[in-house]
Design a protein around this nucleic acid. Structure first.
Length: 577
RNA sequence: CGGGGCGUAGCGCAGCCUGGUAGCGCAUCUGCUUUGGGAGCAGAGGGUCGCAAGUUCGAAUCUUGCCGCCCCGACCA
C-alpha cells in the first residue's frame, strides 16, 4: 500500500485516559478509535492486524477439522430462558426488545444458539463428534470497561463448540484443542502459559486458561520453578505445613491491646511478626436462618484468604460474603479487630498454615485484648480435634502442589479458555441423538474460546519499546516499510522506490510505501510507531553507491545493502522468520 | 454499587480560587525557506467552555441538578 492511499492516523500524544501501554500505542499508531465506553472502531491499520490474527486462528482450527459457521449476534430470549441463563446472567447481558416487544439479547456467548442448531440438525451418533466454530462479535456489558480493547464491551471472539456421544471423545477433542491453542499462540509469536483454571459459572469438568505473560495482566498465575505445573492463583492448592516449631510452649497470656486492631498494629504493639499471629475472618454461613449464621476462617497473619477456595467449603456461603460489623458484635460480643479462635461462639475453619502455628498471638474476643503464647491443643479445648483446611492464597516460595520445585507468580492476560462442558446445555435444551443401540442419548459438549481483539492488545503488551510497537512477524500489518528521502525532489529516488515497490510485491511481500512529502524524521518515527518489522530507506546518497539501507525494527544500526542483492536479502529475512 | 477526580479547538493542557470581550503547544490550511530523526519564519481557519436551570448588570469561573469519562475499592479481624 501507498500511504497516500492508506492513511496512517498516527498521533504524537496519546489521549490522557489511555492507561495501559497497548491502549496508548493502539491509539497513537492509529489502529483504533473510541466511539463510546468499551466500543472501538478498527481503523484500516488495526484491521489488517486483526485479520491476520483471525486467519491464523482459522487456519489452525480448520487444520484439525473444526468447521466454521456464523451465528447471529442477536439472540432470542426464549433460548436463554430454556437454559435458565436469562435469570442467572446479571446486567452484563444486554437485553433488547424489537418493535413487537419481543425480548432478545446481544450475545455474550453462543452455547444456546449452537446447541439449538445441533438439536435440530444432528440426529444420529454417526454424525458425531463434530466441532463448530465462528469468529463473531460479542457484547458483554462490563461494569467497568477499561484498557482499550483489552476489556471492552464489544469485542471479537473465536468460539468453538464440540459435540460428542462419549466422555472419551470429548476428552480427545479437548486435548486436540489444547494442542491447537498452543500452536496458535506459538504462531502468533507470543509467550504464553496454559494454566489449570476454575470452571466458574459455565460449569463442567476440566478447564484450562491460556495466558499471555505481561506485567499488566489482570490475573495472577502460579508456576512451579521446575516441572510443568501452572494454575490460576485462585485455584492453586496449598498443602499442610510441617509442624517445625519444637520450642517449649509458652504460658498463655491475655494482654491489653488498647486500640490495636489490624494485624499490623497488633504486631507492632506486641513486637512480633505477622507470621506469629492468627487472624480470624468472620463470614456468613450457608444457613443464615439457623443457629450459626456466621462462620470463622482462621489464617496466619501474613497470609491472604483465597475467596474461591473458601466459598467451596462446607458451611460457607457461596458466593463468599463477609459479616457486617453489627452482625459480628451482636453474635460474638466484641468488635472486629479483637476476634480470635479461642472460645469463639461459632464454627471455625482453620487454614493449614494457621494450624501449624505454636506460641502465637490472636484476638481474645474481648474489645482491647489479645492472647499471646497460644497453642492449639492446650488452649483451644472447645475445638474438638482441630482440623485444617486449604483457605489461603498460594504465595511465591510455597512448594509446588505437584511436588516439583517451588512456586513463582507472574501476571498474565487471559486470551483463551477451554472447557469440558459436559451436558449442562444439551440437557437443558434436550439435545440428543440416537445411539447405536437405538436409544436417545444426551449429547456431551466442550467449548473453546479465544479473545481475538484481546490477543491484539496482549501482543502489544508483550512487544513494544520507547518508539512504539514491535510486531511479531506473523501479525505485523506490513512486512516492510519503504521510506524515500526527498521523494519529490529526486527523480532517481522516485524511480527506484517505484521499482522496489513493484518488485517486492511481486515476490509476495507486503510493503508500505510512504510516498508522503514529509521529512525523514517524521517518516521514521511513524513507521517505528506502527511497528513494521523491516525498514528500507532509499536516498540519493545511497543510490550514488548503488546501495539501499536496511534496518530491522529492533536493530540498533542500519546496514547498507547493494541494490542488486536487496530483494533476495529481504526475502530471506522475511521468509526465515 | 461505594469513594475520588475530570469535562475549555482534532490531541495535550492553562484560565476557575478572587465573575468583566477564551488562551498556549501540537495538529490543520496558505506562502517562502528547509530536507537523514517528529523543521523555521510569516499569516489564516477552528471553541454552544459537557447539558440544563439558578445567582448576578455580567458566568468557562459561583450554586444546584443531570449527562459523559477516568481512577480506586468491594480482605481492619
Amino acid at each position: 500500500m501507498r500511504v497516500s492511499q492508506f492513511p496512517l492516523f498516527t498521533l504524537k500524544e496519546a489521549p490522557a485516559d489511555a492507561e495501559v501501554i497497548s491502549h496508548q500505542l493502539m491509539l497513537r499508531s492509529g489502529m483504533i478509535r473510541r466511539l463510546a465506553a468499551g466500543l472501538y472502531t478498527w481503523l484500516p491499520l488495526g484491521l489488517r492486524i486483526l485479520r491476520k490474527v483471525e486467519n491464523i486462528i482459522r487456519e489452525e482450527m480448520n487444520k484439525v477439522g473444526a468447521i466454521e459457521l456464523l451465528m447471529p449476534s442477536i439472540q432470542p430470549a426464549e433460548l436463554w430462558q430454556e437454559s435458565e441463563r436469562w435469570n442467572q446472567y446479571g446486567p452484563e447481558l444486554l437485553r433488547i426488545q424489537d418493535r413487537h416487544d419481543r425480548e432478545f439479547c446481544y450475545g455474550p456467548t453462543h452455547e444456546e444458539v449452537i446447541t439449538d442448531l445441533v438439536r435440530r440438525e444432528i440426529r444420529s451418533y454417526k454424525q458425531l463428534p463434530i466441532n463448530f466454530y465462528q469468529i463473531q462479535t460479542k457484547f458483554r456489558d462490563e461494569i467497568r470497561p477499561r484498557f482499550g480493547v483489552m476489556r471492552a464491551r464489544e469485542f471479537s471472539m473465536k468460539d468453538a463448540y464440540s459435540f460428542h456421544t462419549t466422555k472419551e471423545s470429548l476428552e480427545e477433542t479437548y486435548q486436540v484443542m489444547y494442542d491447537t491453542y498452543s500452536n496458535i499462540f506459538n504462531r502468533l509469536g507470543l509467550e504464553f502459559r496454559a494454566v489449570e483454571a476454575d470452571t466458574g459459572s459455565i460449569g463442567g469438568n476440566a478447564s484450562h486458561e491460556f495466558h499471555v505473560l505481561a506485567e499488566s495482566g489482570e490475573d495472577a498465575i502460579a508456576f512451579s520453578s521446575h516441572g510443568s505445573y501452572a494454575a490460576n492463583v485462585e485455584l492453586a492448592p496449598t498443602s499442610p505445613t510441617e509442624q517445625c516449631n519444637e520450642s517449649p510452649a509458652q504460658a498463655l497470656e491475655k494482654i491489653a491491646t488498647p486500640n490495636q486492631h489490624s494485624i499490623e498494629e497488633v504486631c507492632k504493639f506486641l513486637n512480633i511478626s505477622a507470621q506469629q499471629v492468627a487472624k480470624t475472618l468472620i463470614v456468613k454461613s450457608d444457613n443464615p436462618e439457623e443457629d450459626n449464621p456466621l462462620i470463622a476462617l482462621v489464617l496466619r497473619g501474613d497470609h491472604e484468604l483465597n475467596a474461591v477456595k473458601a466459598q467451596k467449603l462446607e458451611g460457607v456461603a457461596n458466593p463468599l460474603e463477609f459479616a457486617s460489623e453489627s452482625e459480628i458484635e451482636k453474635s460474638l460480643g466484641c468488635k472486629i479487630g479483637s476476634i480470635g479462635p479461642l472460645q469463639l461462639k461459632c464454627p471455625i475453619l482453620i487454614d493449614h498454615a494457621a494450624l501449624a502455628l505454636t506460641n502465637f498471638a490472636c484476638g481474645a474476643n474481648q474489645d482491647g485484648f489479645h492472647y499471646q503464647g497460644v497453642n492449639w491443643k492446650r488452649d483451644a479445648s472447645k475445638i474438638k480435634e482441630p482440623r485444617s483446611v486449604d483457605l489461603r492464597k498460594i504465595v511465591e516460595g510455597d512448594p509446588s502442589p505437584d511436588g516439583n520445585g517451588t512456586i513463582q507468580i507472574k501476571r498474565g492476560i487471559e486470551v483463551g479458555h477451554i472447557f469440558q462442558l459436559g451436558d449442562k446445555y444439551s440437557q437443558a435444551l434436550k439435545a440428543s441423538v440416537l445411539g447405536a443401540d437405538g436409544k436417545e442419548q444426551i449429547i456431551t459438549m466442550g467449548c473453546y474460546g479465544i479473545g481475538v481483539t484481546r490477543v491484539v492488545a496482549a501482543a502489544i503488551e508483550q512487544n513494544f519499546d520507547e518508539q512504539g510497537i514491535i510486531w511479531p512477524s506473523s501479525i505485523a500489518p506490513f512486512d516492510i516499510s519503504l521510506i524515500p528521502i526527498n521523494l519529490k525532489k529526486s527523480d532517481q529516488v522516485k524511480a527506484t522506490c517505484e521499482q522496489m515497490y513493484t518488485d517486492l510485491q511481486n515476490r509476495g511481500l507486503e510493503v508500505l510505501f510512504d510516498d508522503r512529502d514529509q521529512r525523514a524524521g517524521l517518516l521514521f518515527a511513524d513507521h517505528e510507531l506502527i511497528g513494521t518489522p523491516h525498514r528500507i530507506v532509499v536516498s540519493e546518497r545511497g543510490l550514488e553507491n548503488s546501495e539501499i539501507e536496511y534496518k530491522g525494527r529492533q536493530d540498533t544500526e542500519a546496514q547498507k545493502i547493494p541494490m542488486t542483492k536487496i530483494l533476495d536479502f529481504l526475502q530471506n529475512k522475511i521468509t526465515r522468520n
